[in-house]
Amino acid sequence: MTKIIGLLTTVILLSYSLIGLSREELDLNKLIAFTRDKYDEDAVKRMVAWRKIIAEKKGLPEKEKLQVVNRFFNYFEFVDDIKLWGQENYWATPIEFIGLRGGDCEDFSVAKYFTLLELGVPIDKLRLIYVKSITLNQFHMVLAYYPTKTAVPLILDNIDGEIKPAFKRKDLVPIISFNGKQLWINKQKGQGKTATSGKSLKDWDNLSNRYSLEAFKS
């Protein structure tokens, strides 16, 4: 458990500073220019498709938003960080993930998380969860959606593309879950014990700062 918490301290816990950024004010033309300069025309098409989802799907019921976002990102390619970034553990911003059309499980989950927040899904309903994948015999990350505070969450995953309630994902053993407000040490049953606040996990600032610079680059 200490190793997992230590890993988290080097990567992510979401901060309100980025959540509060007004994506409605994002200049799409500037984002396209940034994407074209850094990536390619295919990346521009993906970026436009992403922003179209943000612009057009806010009125959908929440569960339909989950389906749209999960389907969009699960078309992307799984690529290990070593191969893509030359690092054992690199947390890509959603824009980096979309630009390259690839990343590892954390990148899939983070991109879905941010997109659902932009679509108006409350932060209290979303958690990123580190799990042990029994099938893969390794650590993995998924995104969980809680319809209510005490509900069984729905799991969004890049390995199994079908959104399922957690009790149907017996191949996943939850370890730690977190969002922009709290970190939980998970139990086999129930919601888990609150462990700490987001302030104790500092390096999300690096990712959030890169993301905000990319998204609003002038």
Score class of each variant (00 low, 15 high):
204 W>H: 06
59 G>L: 00
64 E>A: 12
185 I>S: 04
80 D>G: 11
34 F>Y: 15
138 Q>I: 02
206 N>T: 13
49 A>R: 10
113 Y>N: 00
204 W>I: 11
214 E>L: 03
77 E>Q: 14
16 Y>S: 15
116 L>C: 01
117 L>N: 06
168 K>P: 01
40 D>K: 02
130 Y>W: 04
33 A>G: 15
204 W>D: 06
9 T>M: 08
195 A>K: 09
25 E>N: 14
138 Q>S: 13
65 K>A: 07
22 S>H: 09
86 G>E: 06
90 Y>I: 03
199 K>Y: 14
21 L>W: 09
146 Y>M: 05
191 Q>E: 12
16 Y>D: 15
197 S>I: 13
63 K>L: 12
136 L>Y: 13
150 T>K: 12
167 F>Y: 14
160 D>E: 12
108 F>P: 06
162 E>C: 02
73 F>S: 02
164 K>Y: 01
90 Y>V: 04
152 V>A: 09
189 K>H: 09
85 W>T: 05
12 I>W: 13
44 V>F: 00
119 L>H: 08
52 K>E: 10
111 A>E: 07
145 Y>F: 15
147 P>H: 04
148 T>L: 08
31 L>D: 00
148 T>P: 03
106 E>R: 08
34 F>D: 06
205 D>F: 08
209 N>E: 11
174 P>Y: 05
51 R>D: 09
143 L>C: 03
50 W>V: 02
139 F>Y: 14
96 E>W: 01
50 W>A: 00
136 L>F: 08
16 Y>H: 15
94 P>F: 03
151 A>Q: 07
94 P>Y: 04
123 I>P: 01
35 T>N: 03
21 L>I: 08
90 Y>N: 07
14 L>Q: 09
173 V>W: 00
87 Q>E: 15
19 I>T: 10
69 V>P: 06
40 D>L: 08
33 A>F: 03
122 P>T: 00
27 D>Y: 07
164 K>A: 05
211 Y>G: 00
95 I>V: 12
81 D>C: 01
146 Y>F: 15
211 Y>W: 11
190 G>T: 04
167 F>V: 05
189 K>N: 10
105 C>F: 06
143 L>M: 05
3 K>P: 06
161 G>Y: 10
167 F>N: 14
43 A>G: 11
196 T>H: 07
180 G>V: 03
103 G>E: 09
130 Y>G: 00
163 I>G: 05
33 A>P: 03
202 K>A: 06
191 Q>L: 14
88 E>N: 12
72 F>L: 01
122 P>N: 02
56 E>Y: 09
49 A>H: 06
172 L>I: 08
29 N>I: 02
120 G>N: 05
132 K>P: 00
137 N>E: 13
59 G>I: 03
32 I>G: 00
158 N>V: 02
181 K>F: 07
119 L>N: 08
193 K>Y: 05
175 I>F: 05
170 K>E: 13
56 E>F: 03
17 S>Y: 11
213 L>T: 09
42 D>Q: 11
137 N>K: 14
119 L>T: 07
189 K>D: 09
131 V>Y: 04
195 A>L: 14
152 V>E: 15
92 A>E: 10
134 I>M: 10
79 V>D: 01
